[in-house]
Design a protein around this nucleic acid. Structure first.
Length: 155
DNA sequence: GCCAACGTTGGC
DNA sequence: GCCAACGTTGGC
């Protein structure tokens, strides 16, 4: 059963173009340090799941591409790298705390902006539109996925 | 830079 | 186990 997700990335860290430029248009989703988001990757995301690639903390936050989960989960290597700012000294290699999946960009889209998402009645209930939501990875309902796919294809 | 809304930490 | 203090996220 395919599931759908929205994953936030700061374009200054890894933009959709950065991901497209990577080998196989695939990037490891490093740096998630929130247990709920980790659990989605570690316990629920499966290769082939649909992903909405979202740019956050930038001029025009919004959905900028369609992607897919491209691996099963595995330990985030940056947690053990003392030079990485994602380093987690409390995590031990024999019991890694943070897991990630690889994400492959399927296609870049126009920027379906946050403000446009907010003004689309059919998207009511989408997790990132809920007040106070900060999670960098959230599940997307199939009907929301279909609606967003349609919007992405319209100029 | 502001600040609301969280999540985490650590003293007790 | 409580909860105050602190840190982070992320839109604006």
């Amino acid at each position: 059963m395919t599931s759908y997700w929205l994953m936030k990335s700061e374009p200054s860290e890894c933009s959709v173009d950065d991901a497209l430029a990577a080998k196989n248009s695939t990037v490891p989703w490093i740096g998630v340090r929130n247990y709920q988001a980790r659990n989605f990757m570690r316990d629920h995301m499966k290769p082939g799941d649909g992903v909405l690639f979202y740019h956050s903390s930038c001029e025009e936050p919004g959905i900028v591409g369609i992607a897919e989960v491209a691996s099963t989960s595995y330990p985030d290597p940056t947690q053990f790298d003392a030079k990485s700012h994602y380093h987690d000294p409390k995590s031990r290699p024999e019991e890694p705390r943070w897991h990630l999946v690889d994400v492959r960009v399927v296609r870049k889209t126009r920027n379906l902006t946050l403000s446009e998402l907010r003004t689309t009645p059919a998207l009511e209930g989408l997790t990132i539109l809920k007040k106070g939501n900060r999670l960098s990875i959230t599940p997307v309902e199939p009907q929301h996925w279909r609606q967003i796919s349609k919007l992405l294809d319209k100029p």
